[in-house]
Design a protein around this nucleic acid. Sequence first.
DNA 1: TGAAAAAACAGGGAAAACACTGAAAGAATA
DNA 2: TATTCTTTCAGTGTTTTCCCTGTTTTTTCA
Lengths: 210, 210
Amino acid sequence: MNYSVVVVDDHFLLSQAIGGLVQDFKKFKVLYLCKNGSELLDKFDDKKNIPDLVLMDIKMPILNGIETTEILRKDFPNVKVLALSIEEDEYTILKMLRAGARGYLLKDTKKNILEEALIQVMEKGHYYTNTVSQILVDSLENEIDTELKEKEIEFIKLACTDMSYKEISEAMCCSYKTVEGYRDSVHKKLKVKNRIGLVLFAIHHNLFTP
Amino acid sequence: MNYSVVVVDDHFLLSQAIGGLVQDFKKFKVLYLCKNGSELLDKFDDKKNIPDLVLMDIKMPILNGIETTEILRKDFPNVKVLALSIEEDEYTILKMLRAGARGYLLKDTKKNILEEALIQVMEKGHYYTNTVSQILVDSLENEIDTELKEKEIEFIKLACTDMSYKEISEAMCCSYKTVEGYRDSVHKKLKVKNRIGLVLFAIHHNLFTP
DNA sequence: TGAAAAAACAGGGAAAACACTGAAAGAATA
DNA sequence: TATTCTTTCAGTGTTTTCCCTGTTTTTTCA
């Protein structure tokens, strides 16, 4: 019996192409393709459309991979999710795994590795490459006191523009001194030494997309 | 007779998958896949390996799509290049077209559009979507006095780190005041008002990849 | 080789960013 | 209600960035 697979990716070409690869694998068949999480969930209204495994991109419009995976884990725990993303960003990988993904395939995956990963996810329940395992280990060490508050995240996003802190304080409807407080606290938490460092951090960790 | 195609992309999965799609098209056959421009040029040493068309990604390690396309135009003018990139960035598209690409496919291309594009490139010599045409038009207006000197580009790259200008002056082996001069001149040329603005500009225009 | 242009550098002042300590107001908890 | 914790904000001083106006040195080229 074949396992059914759905590919969710906003890049049409990529999802079609990956669908084509998966279709070639003996143990798998592709049910359909989706452009984002929302479209996937709509499909699930009909039970026939619920697959064994979802190959999920992360950056997608409307409903992204992380949010979608969280919903799936809650509402459809039998559906296994394998993340498949073009860029390897530690925080994103972590978030995706926390959300419930059974593994994470990086961009330079080869066809036979994809097949191997699909098989392992279905039969062992998970698939982790060395890279991903290493990231998991590394994360346990650096994952202290980097919990950002709502306001701090809002501040960081504004700090990633060419606004001055005075302008930011007006945009956030608070005192200039409060903004300085946010700055000092995120500088400490994220261990950056100036605003440029903060911008680079935000980009690398997907708090801000330039 | 079939046109021969080579796919150049560092994302293994993507190049394999696209190769699979192209293989399905009647008029085309895939010669081989490459991971970057350097690998492609190595292959060209043997005349048998020179295809009619190259489907080229832009961001690649070692030798990127723009550089590779420039070399191809000079040394192998009969090989047509069609750019195929995941992210649509105006400046990148422009650079690629200037380098000699016959067209530019955006991420949400569908299978039949890909085929259409391949056919048009081979038979008409080019393929431009509306999006790309619009970008070409827009670019003619903003393209005044943004000629950057070597030193200024070097400065910009360093300004995209968390170094202070004093540290940058040491790295560039020149006076602090000279660095201030570079800063003032690029601020004027690029119409940015502070260092954050400069970093964002650099990222958007691929002077710096975070 | 001499004039013009470009690149490197300098001074100084205003503005912004950084770094610290600490106080007041509000929310949470027991 | 008292206590703790968090959030917001203030004071103060230092460093860095920004933005002028210039001078000296090097390059260019007619």
